[in-house]
Simulated assay, not measured.
Amino acid sequence: MLFPSPLVPARLVRRYKRFLADCRLDDGEEVTAHVANSGSMLGLATPGSRVYLAPSSDPKRKLAWSWQLVEVDGALVGIDTGLSNRIVAEAIAGGRIRALAGYDRLRREVPYGERSRVDMLLEGDGRPPCYVEVKSVTLSRRPGLAEFPDAVTARGAKHLAELAAVVRGGARAVLLYLVQRGDCHSFELAADIDPTYAAAAGAARAAGVERLVVHADVMPAGIEIRSDF
């Protein structure tokens, strides 16, 4: 996935109200950027960090900037969780996720469960439908180790129970963790942050929900899935 226009470097002044960040451009101008990330962004919002912003010329937008990347110890991290589904969908279409290859159709935001929408539904003649839920992974508290979640997520636990239900109904279900940072080579659930989610993930795997971890190369030009862990 390529960014539609070149990102603009800046320094983070502060993140606040979850979805707002004040940043200082290299020319000294201070701007407010939208933060498309509802998590805690633990370890990613240190004032003074090098960040990369996407500009917008859309007059209907309230904010002209969106925070896309942050540099942590020399590695870039993609913080815009709103892009996760697009990154994964492009990788599936390009055949870069072997475990999800061979389906003829991909539909997005399909209703299922109890007033939920699955991120992607893969369908193909002669095979069960595959429900894919995507989680963006940005947390790393130990060198090389990516973790999820970075905050308590009741919604995430609900999705796990609903994926287990579709498996019991004869479909395939995959919980895909997209690691949006280039300095990690392994993955674990952050059970100390959200033990309820970790327990729900274990129950879902026991019920047949597959866990798939994929790694993305994060670059100023774009974010692209490179390989499965």
Rank of each mutant, 00 (worst) to 15 (best):
M1S: 15
P4T: 02
L7R: 10
L12F: 07
L12C: 02
Y16L: 09
K17F: 13
L20T: 05
A21H: 14
C23L: 14
D26R: 12
E29D: 14
E30I: 15
E30T: 15
V31D: 01
V35P: 00
S38M: 04
G39P: 09
S40M: 03
L44C: 06
S49P: 10
V51S: 10
S57W: 04
D58S: 14
P59G: 00
P59V: 03
Q68H: 01
D73E: 15
G74K: 09
G74C: 10
V77A: 12
T81N: 14
A89F: 03
E90R: 14
A93S: 12
A93E: 15
G94V: 00
R98H: 06
L100N: 00
A101K: 15
D104P: 01
L106F: 05
L106Y: 02
L106T: 14
R107G: 00
R107H: 07
R108T: 14
E109R: 09
E109D: 13
E109L: 00
V110C: 03
V110N: 02
P111N: 12
Y112N: 07
G113K: 11
E114H: 12
S116F: 03
R117I: 11
V118E: 05
D119T: 11
D119W: 10
L121V: 10
G124L: 09
G126F: 04
R127H: 02
P128C: 06
P129A: 14
P129V: 12
E133A: 09
E133I: 03
V137A: 02
V137S: 00
L139D: 04
S140D: 03
R141C: 01
P143G: 09
P149I: 05
P149Q: 08
D150R: 10
D150F: 01
A154V: 06
R155C: 01
R155K: 13
A157D: 05
A157M: 05
H159A: 04
H159Q: 15
E162L: 08
L163P: 00
L163N: 01
V166K: 06
G170F: 02
A173N: 01
A173D: 11
A173C: 00
V174R: 04
V174P: 08
L176H: 00
L176F: 11
Y177D: 07
L178M: 01
G182Y: 05
G182D: 06
D183V: 12
H185S: 14
H185L: 04
S186M: 07
F187E: 12
F187W: 11
A190V: 06
I193L: 14
D194N: 06
T196G: 04
G202R: 15
V214R: 12
A216N: 06
D217R: 15
V218G: 00
V218M: 08
A221L: 13
G222K: 11
I223Q: 04
E224F: 12
R226D: 10
F229D: 12
